[in-house]
Amino acid sequence: MLTIKELHKKFNPGTVNEKTALQDINLNMAEGDFITLIGGNGAGKSTLLNCIAGVYGVDSGIIAIAGENVTKFSEHKRAGVIGRVFQDPMMGTASNMGIEENLALAYRRGKRRSLKWGISQAERQIYRELLGSLELGLEDRLGTKVGLLSGGQRQALTLLMAILIRPKLLLLDEHTAALDPKTAEKVLQLSEKFINEGKLTTLMVTHNMRHAIKHGNRLIMMHDGRIILDIKGEEKQKLTVEGLMKRFGKASGEEFADDRVLLS
């Protein structure tokens, strides 16, 4: 579903601030793969997601989604086949617009927008049902401005918007990191539910080793802009935090020492 070949990305090339963010990334995601992507700060996880989504251009390499080379496509054009949820709950929704208006924007992702009325009565019924499935009491607040919702509610709404039109690829960029543990758990459960129900091809970045091990059918670890571990199948199922840390040490030649990952 997603194919990445020899991807390279440098920030500020040719200056003293030059930083190699991605080096020779190669990745093949099969349809229905649910990959958890883990790594320390500055490992390149978010950069990789942003390159796939088209936020950043790449220096060299190829990104293809469902067989189509999208390397040169702009961000909004790729959005037609990609659903995204960001780390910052404020980022994924328009705060001055209502819940239903935000959903209506997402409902038209990848379609041509015309001078038809921006939201139809039939859609409202769909939104009400879907919002009900979140069990956050949002189904009776269709007109409420999203700015009035809590971080967790906004993140759940963003998730719903990302899957409203079935995406060929779902990108979750540490989407629970900014939430309190209880809300994070709830949003994670919802994500798992939507991914399983829709058999969505998903790439989820996380800082949390436990989450990375528990969720998904494949785990990828990044370090210094490279993919250093790729664990799948039965091996993934048997994985423990200790085992993962040992394997990290072997693969990178360093001891795993990122507080944020270890403590979470």
Binding site: A79, M91, A94, L105, K111
Partner: peptide, 8 residues
């Protein structure tokens, strides 16, 4: 940012 992510 949200607008672009929704294909606008």
């Amino acid at each position: 940012q949200m607008a672009r992510a929704q294909g606008i």
